[in-house]
Design a protein around this nucleic acid. Structure first.
Lengths: 348, 348
DNA sequence: TGACAAATTTGGATCGATCCAATTAAGTCA
DNA sequence: TGACTTAATTGGATCGATCCAAATTTGTCA
C-alpha cells in the first residue's frame, strides 16, 4: 500500500498501458486513441485518483497555477470585497489563491511573501501594508514574478499598479458640496502619512479652489480610518469657532462614524450637515440616510487587478503598467442634495 | 543557466560540499559542523536561494504546510473576520492558507475543494455553502485529511465541527427583552431553510416560553440575512395588527437594517422599539445606537477552528470532535435597557 | 506483399529536495 | 601507533508527473 495514494503508475498498471499514455490522457492530448482514453479515464475514476500538481510543477517548464494575494486589513470590507473580486477571476482561470492578511505589519508581510515564494506562486496581487518600500518587493520582482500593486502605490517599485483616481474623486465630491451651497467644507479622517490620504487631500483642495472657496488647514482633521475615527474627527471639527457645514470623509467607515458623531450631538446627517464618503462599500446604499459617496467598486477593482496579473503571467515577461481606476460620485441622501435649497450656515 | 533558479546542487557546488550537506543545513540538523553550516548559509544568502517546498513535499513522508479555508460569503464581515482568525493561527504555525469564496454555490465549492486537494492541502476549515451535504466532503475525509466545519453543521458528515451555541444565545436575548417588559417580541430575518436559523428559532421559542409569553408564528419574519433584508422584515412586521415592540434579529446585518427601517418610519431604535442582533461584528459597538447583540467573536472562532485543525494534522489520525462556541449577551443601547422603565405598548 | 507514411505507445531521463546506508575524518585511549 | 568510538559528510535512490526520442502498431498505395 502506497499510503493509499494512487499515482499514474498505478493507473497505468490497472489499465494495461504505460504511465506515459496516462500522462497524455491527463493533459487531454489528441495523440491518444479514443478507446484507450476511455479505458484510462474509467480506471482513473474507479481508483479515485487525485492529480498531484506539486509533482507536475517540478518540471521547470510548468507553472504553478497559484497566485498570492496579500491585503493589509481583511476585516475592512473594502479589502474583503477586493479579495472576492480577485478570487472570482483567479478561480475561473483555474488558479487558486494564497490569501494572507498582514494587519498593516510590514514584518508579517515580508514573511508571507517569502512563504508564498517558497510555494512557487506565479504572480502576486498586493495591497501593501503602511510603510512598505520598493525594496520589500525587490527579490520577488527580480525573479521575474509579476506583481500588481493595488489601492496604495509604492514609490519606485518596478511593478504594475491599479490605483483608483483619488484626486478626481475627492475633487468631484467637494465641487458637489459647493454646488449645494456649502462654504465651509471639512476633510475628515484618515492617516495623514499615507499616499492615499495625500491624493485625496490634493483633490479636496482642487475642488475648493475650483469653487472659489478658501482653503483653511483647520478644516482638515485626520484620524484612524475607521468608524470610531470618524466620530472623533467630526467632534473635533465641531469645536471650531467657524464650524464646517459639510465634510468629505476619508472613506465610508469614517463617514458612518461622522454620522454617528453628528447624531450624538442631535444633528441629522443630510439635514443639518452634509456628509460625503469615499469607496461606496455595500452598506452605503442601505444605510439611513443612504450615503453619498465616491464609488470605487472594490470587487471590480479586484477583478481588474487579477485580469492584469493573469495577462502578465501568460505574457511570460511582465511589462509594468500603471492603471487608474475610474471613480464616480454617487449622490444619495447624506449630502442633503434632496433637501430643499437653503443657506448653509453654522448652526449655533 | 537554469532559468535563473538556484537549487541545492548549485549551493553545494559553490560551497564545495555535497547536496546532502546543504539539505541538512536547510533543516537545521545538529549533525553538521558549525563551520560548514556558516559557509553554506553564506552561499545561500549570496546566491539568493529560494527553498522549493513543492519539491520537498514530493517525498511521501513530508506534509505540505498548506491548509485550505473555504467560506460561503467573504463579503459578509463575519466570515472575513473568521478568515482572519484562521489566518493568524495558520501563519504562526508556519502554514499558508488557500482561501476560496464560494458565494453559496455548492458547485463552485466542489471545484475549489477538488483543486485544493490536487495542491495537497493537509487540512481544511470550511463554512459550507447552503445545501452542502455530507457526500460533498466524503472523498476528502476518506483520504484522511482533517476537516473542521464551522458556523454551519453538516448532518451525517464524519468531521469535526465548531458551531456557536445558537440556541442558548437566542434564548438569552429573548429573556433579556422580556425582562425589559416586552410582551410582543419578533424574530426577524434569515433564511428559514438553514440549520442556523432553525437553532436560533428554537432558542427564541424557548426564551418566550421561559418568560411565559405566547409564541405567535406571525412574529417570525424571514428575509435575506443582510441589511436590506432587515429593512424588509421589520417593515412587514410593523404592518401587523398587533405590532411587536421589540425584535431578536437573525444577525447584526439584519439588525442594522431593522434600525434603518425603524428610522424611515420615524421610530428610534432603543427608544420606540427594542433591537437585539446576533454575532457582534465590529461595527456593533460603534454604531449609533450601539447594538445589543449576542457576541460570537468570529475571529476567536476562526482561531479555535484553526487550532483544532492543527491539532488534528499533528495527531496524524483525525478524531472527529464536536465543539460548541460559547456566546454571551452584550447589552448596549439598541435594546432600550438604559431607557427609563416603561410599559411597552404598540405605538399607534 | 513490400515500402512507406501516419497514428499510437513507451522506456528512461528529468525536475529539486530528502533520506538511507555507507564512507571518510576527527577524536580517544591503551 | 593501532584499534576503536564518535562526528561529519556523501552518493545514489526516491517521490509523481512530464517530456523526448525511439519503438511499435496501423493504414495506404504502388
Amino acid at each position: 500500500m502506497n499510503k493509499g495514494r494512487v499515482t499514474v503508475v498505478d493507473i497505468a498498471h490497472a489499465a494495461g498501458v504505460s504511465k506515459s499514455t496516462v500522462s497524455l490522457v491527463l493533459q487531454g492530448s489528441p495523440l491518444v486513441n479514443e478507446a484507450t482514453r476511455a479505458k484510462v479515464n474509467a480506471v482513473i475514476r474507479d481508483l479515485g485518483y487525485v492529480y498531484n500538481r506539486a509533482a507536475a510543477n517540478l518540471r521547470q517548464t510548468a507553472s504553478s497555477k497559484i497566485v498570492g494575494i496579500v491585503v493589509n486589513d481583511l476585516t475592512n470590507s473594502f479589502f474583503a470585497e477586493l479579495a472576492v473580486g480577485v478570487d472570482m477571476v483567479v478561480q475561473s482561470a483555474g488558479y487558486v489563491q494564497f490569501l494572507a492578511n498582514t494587519a498593516e505589519s510590514v514584518t508579517r508581510q515580508g514573511e508571507v511573501i517569502a512563504s508564498m515564494r517558497e510555494h512557487g506562486i506565479s504572480g502576486l496581487v498586493i495591497s501593501p501594508a503602511r510603510g512598505t518600500e520598493a525594496a520589500d518587493l525587490k527579490p520577488l520582482v527580480a525573479s521575474g514574478i509579476p506583481v500588481v500593486v493595488v489601492v496604495r502605490n509604492i514609490a519606485g517599485a518596478k511593478v504594475s499598479s491599479l490605483i483608483s483616481d483619488n484626486r478626481a474623486g475627492a475633487r468631484a465630491a467637494v465641487e458637489h458640496l459647493a454646488g449645494l451651497g456649502h462654504r465651509r467644507i471639512a476633510f475628515l479622517g484618515g492617516f495623514p502619512d499615507t499616499a492615499v490620504f495625500d491624493e485625496r487631500r490634493v483633490g479636496y483642495r482642487e475642488g475648493l479652489a475650483a469653487a472659489g472657496l478658501e482653503v483653511a488647514n483647520d478644516l482638515i482633521a485626520g484620524s484612524a480610518p475607521s468608524r470610531a475615527g470618524g466620530v472623533d474627527a467630526v467632534q473635533r471639527a465641531l469645536l471650531l469657532a467657524d464650524r464646517p457645514t459639510a465634510a468629505l470623509c476619508f472613506n465610508d467607515a469614517v463617514a458612518f462614524g461622522v454620522c454617528d458623531g453628528l447624531r450624538s450631538r442631535r444633528m441629522e446627517p443630510g439635514v443639518d450637515f452634509g456628509v460625503v464618503g469615499f469607496d461606496d462599500v455595500i452598506e452605503a446604499k442601505t444605510a439611513v440616510p443612504a450615503l453619498t459617496t465616491i464609488s470605487v467598486d472594490p470587487q471590480g477593482m479586484g477583478q481588474r487587478a487579477a485580469q492584469l496579473l493573469m495577462k502578465q503571467i501568460n505574457a511570460g515577461k511582465p511589462e509594468p503598467e500603471a492603471l487608474t481606476g475610474a471613480v464616480r460620485l454617487v449622490v444619495r441622501q447624506s449630502c442633503g442634495a434632496g433637501a430643499k435649497r437653503q443657506e448653509w450656515r453654522s448652526a449655533v
